[in-house]
Amino acid sequence: MPIAIIPALLRKYTAGQERITVQGRTVREVVADLERHYPGIAAHLLEDGDLKPSIAVSIDGEIAPEGLLGPVDEASEVYFLPALGGGR
């Protein structure tokens, strides 16, 4: 099953847990699964139904340009990171 890695500031919603085993075949499904188990966390990742522009998602070490549509497989690790391109 894929693993979601929770940013430090959001671990208060996951009882301090950093690595959480989740279900889902896309980032959208992963976030939905996180929300099911840790209500309230999705509001910090999403905005208007899309990934917050200040957040980037990395799947297996590679920034996923597809965002929420990014494909996740059984062994994937999904990281939520601050989006780069600050200073613009």
């Binding site: 990171l81 601050p82 989006a83 780069l84 600050g86 200073g87 613009r88």
Partner: peptide
């Protein structure tokens, strides 16, 4: 808003 501090931290 929008300094590159997130990048700096990483």
């Amino acid at each position: 808003p929008g300094s590159p501090v997130g990048a700096g931290a990483m």
